[in-house]
Simulated scan of single mutants.
Amino acid sequence: MNFNPEKKTITIILQITSFVIVSLILWNTNSFFKKFKEEERNKVEIWASALVELQSLPADADPGNLPLKIFQNNTTTPMILMNRDGAIKVSNMPKEITTDTALIQKKIIKFGEENKPIKIEYKGEDLATLYYGNSDVLNKLKYYPIALLLIIFLFGTVIYFFFKTNKSSEQNKLWAGMAKETAHQIGTPLTSLLGWNELLKAENINPSITEEIEKDIARLETITERFSKIGSLPILAEHDIVVETKNAFDYLKLRSSKLIHFSFSSKAENLPVLLNKSLFQWTIENLVKNGIDAMRGKGSISVEILKEGNNAVILVSDTGHGILKKDFNTIFNPGFTSKKRGWGLGLSLVKRIVEEYHKGKIKVLTSSKDGTIMKITFKLNS
């Protein structure tokens, strides 16, 4: 659901721009890495050429300063020189490697994979083979794109959650506004109904009729109160959760199909919990109604209340078609529904009422093709 097309366009532009920037950085880094690698090979080839020049000079000849400077300046590239007679010379590597033949052989294999070995020849004759690895700078540069991608990923994650939170906030404001407007709209005909009921009483009609009308008016007042509290922090007071649960359960029991068997039990009495009566009863009603829908109007609904340590636990069971295990958490997301005409708001409201307003917990305890058990946990106020 998109409440602000302009923001969505900006988000898409930012995502495309970020992708282009990242691609350019990675391409530039890769080009720089290849260029640096080529320059390092050139440096090693010059070193090999200087070696050939030195070995080709007579024993009493002056080698000059250039070849010596070339040898002295190359201190960063690890190298292994293998002469044609099998003699090995190690350069720019830790001392412990120079005495370990097995480790040298492993390094030769590794260097051969990293860079193509350089054949040192003189007058068409092979003198030696030079194996060399990447310098420390080149190795660090190799991991730079990974570090960059990680940073960009973290940055992208932060942006994603920012927009997601912002979108969720907009949705919450919209639903809260709609709920308050609904409560406001109900208020006008409700006031009128109160007046009409008083006129009916004055006409001395059957009292049972006006009593039932009063019950429905009280019900509408409760619904109005519930909707008006969405989006604002409700006032909590200490109530016996056994009594409040039973009141909500009995109300639905009297107004439901006779094909449904209702069962209520409590293994504890007087369990004080900080509750908002109206919202809590809405929670129980939603769970029971969901169970009735899952059973398609025929089956058994049971509510059981337990005391577990310092917690009051409510178990709402039905004999419906069950919930897939992969949907145990998803069913509480706004918009998720298995009903053809459902809006997917009931359980999301239940979760918000239980966890955000009452600091409790709700979850699917078990579910199968034979039914579902929902578990609500509240801390006792003691």
Rank of each mutant, 00 (worst) to 15 (best):
K379D: 04
Q72E: 15
S18L: 10
I159M: 14
E121S: 15
A102N: 07
L26N: 00
F328N: 04
A128Q: 06
W47Y: 15
K35D: 10
N311I: 01
N381M: 06
P272Y: 05
W343P: 03
I209G: 07
G133L: 07
D318W: 02
L275I: 07
I109S: 13
S208T: 07
G231Q: 06
S168V: 13
N42H: 02
R341P: 00
N204K: 14
G112D: 03
F249W: 02
K369E: 14
K229R: 15
L345R: 06
S368Y: 10
I314W: 02
Q55E: 14
I205K: 14
Q15T: 08
G231K: 08
T75Y: 09
W343H: 03
P117W: 05
A202F: 01
S192I: 15
E356L: 13
E225W: 01
E212Y: 02
K110M: 00
P63F: 08
M1S: 12
N172M: 12
H358S: 03
E125I: 12
L24C: 09
T9Q: 06
W47I: 09
L141W: 11
E40C: 00
D60K: 12
E45Q: 08
S31P: 05
K277L: 09
N65L: 15
P67E: 07
S23K: 09
V22C: 13
H239I: 05
T222Y: 09
L220D: 08
T99W: 03
S300L: 03
K164C: 10
A183N: 05
E221D: 13
W27K: 07
D318A: 09
N73Q: 15
E121R: 12
S265K: 13
K106H: 09
K375Y: 04
K339L: 14
N115L: 04
L254E: 11
S367C: 11
Q281W: 02
W282D: 06
T17K: 01
N30G: 09
Q15E: 05
N276P: 00
L54C: 05
H321M: 14
A176I: 11
K116C: 00
T98S: 15
S265V: 08
N166V: 06
S278W: 00
L66H: 13
L236R: 00
L345S: 07
I118F: 10
L141C: 11
L365V: 11
G291S: 07
A179M: 05
L365P: 01
T17Y: 04
K307S: 14
M374T: 01
K89R: 13
L57D: 04
E238N: 13
K107T: 05
G156A: 09
E38G: 10
K359M: 07
P58H: 08
T165N: 15
P5D: 06
G297N: 06
F264C: 09
F163E: 13
A128K: 05
A59L: 13
Q105T: 11
R84N: 12
L127N: 03
V350M: 01
K359L: 07
L148V: 08
G371S: 04
G195Y: 11
T366Q: 08
E356A: 14
Y251I: 03
S338N: 03
S232K: 01
M374G: 00
L51P: 05
G297K: 08
D318V: 00
S257C: 07
D100S: 10
E285T: 11
F36K: 10
S192W: 08
I230Y: 00
L365F: 06
T182H: 15
M374R: 02
L190T: 12
M178W: 10
I376D: 01
P67A: 10
K106N: 14
F163Y: 13
L324Y: 04
S18P: 03
N270Y: 02
